[in-house]
Amino acid sequence: MAIKVVPRYGNSLKDKLYLPGIAGGMKTTFKHFFKNLKDVGGVNTLQYPEVQPTDITPRYRGVHRLTKHDDGTEKCVACFMCATACPAECIFIEAEERFDGVDEKRPKEFKIDLLECVFCGYCVEACPCDAIRMDTGIFSFTSSKREDFVLNKKALMANEKSKDFE
C-alpha cells in the first residue's frame, strides 16, 4: 500500500494575508446588505420576545421540569444519573431517605443552574425513572438577578408540560 502525500495549502503570502477570504466574505455580506436595502418589506423581522416564533418543533428543548406520581410526590429517586450525564455539571442533588414506601430515597435538594446548562437533553435521556423532562415550552427565561436562574425542586415541580408537546 502506497502512502499518499497530501499537499499543504496556505503557505503563499496571498494565503497568509487572508485577503482573498476577507474579500469573499465582504462580497457576500454586501450582496445581502444591498438586496435587503432595496426590499425592506421583504425582510422577515420578529418582534421577540413579544411575538414568539411559530416554527418551534415539539422536539425543541425548553426549561426543565420534574415529573410527579399521581399522588403529587416526585418521581425522582435521587440516583444522580442526570447529574452524572450532564456535561455542563449544572445539576446539584442532595438525597434523603424516603419513608413512604414508594422508593428508597428522594431528592432533599434538586437544583439546576440554567446559566450553566447547555440544554443538551442528556439529563432527560439518562433518567431511568422519567423524572426529568424538558417539554415545558419555556424557551426564553429572563431575569435581572443570577439567583433567579437557579431553579430549585419546588420551581421544577411547578413547571408544567406545554400543551404544544401533547
Rank of each mutant, 00 (worst) to 15 (best):
C76E: 10
L17C: 02
V118K: 13
I132C: 07
K35M: 07
T73P: 10
V124P: 01
N159T: 01
E104T: 10
S162W: 00
K38S: 09
V77D: 15
P7C: 00
H32R: 06
F34S: 12
M81A: 15
K14F: 10
D103A: 15
P53F: 04
L156H: 07
F149K: 06
V124I: 02
M134L: 13
L115C: 01
L66T: 07
E97L: 11
T73V: 12
C127Q: 01
E104L: 12
A78F: 06
S140V: 10
D15T: 01
H69P: 03
A23I: 15
I91A: 09
A155K: 11
E74L: 08
R146D: 13
D15P: 00
K16I: 04
F92Q: 08
T57Y: 05
G137P: 03
A158H: 01
V118E: 09
F165H: 11
P107T: 05
L13W: 09
C86L: 13
P7R: 11
K68H: 14
D135W: 00
I132W: 02
L46E: 11
G41Q: 13
T29H: 12
C127T: 03
M81G: 10
E109W: 00
T73E: 12
V51C: 03
M81W: 04
A78H: 05
A158F: 06
H69V: 02
K153S: 06
L156C: 03
K145T: 13
Y48T: 10
K163S: 13
G137R: 07
F165R: 15
L115E: 11
C82L: 04
S144V: 09
N36R: 12
F110I: 02
L114K: 00
M26A: 14
D55T: 09
R65T: 04
D15C: 04
Q52V: 05
C123S: 05
T136N: 02
C123I: 03
G137Y: 02
K31N: 08
C82M: 05
A88G: 14
K105G: 02
V5W: 08
L37T: 04
T67P: 06
T29F: 15
K68Y: 08
T136W: 01
I56H: 00
L17N: 07
V102Y: 08
A131S: 14
G137E: 09
R59V: 00
E50N: 10
C123E: 04
K153W: 13
A85L: 11
C129A: 06
C129D: 11
F92I: 01
V63N: 05
T45Y: 11
A155S: 09
R8P: 00
E147S: 15
D100V: 06
C86Y: 12
G121R: 01
E96V: 04
H69A: 07
E116F: 07
P49G: 09
A131V: 09
C127F: 13
T142E: 14
T73Q: 14
K161P: 03
F92C: 00
A78G: 11
M1D: 09
V77K: 14
G41A: 09
F99V: 10
D113G: 07
K154H: 06
V124E: 15
D70V: 08
E74Y: 05
V77A: 12
T142N: 10
C120N: 07
F33P: 00
R8T: 11
F99N: 04
K111H: 12
K161R: 15
P49R: 00
A95Q: 10
L115G: 10
G24D: 10
A131G: 08
K161G: 13
A83Y: 04
S140Q: 06
Y9Q: 08
K161L: 10
G10D: 08
G121Y: 05
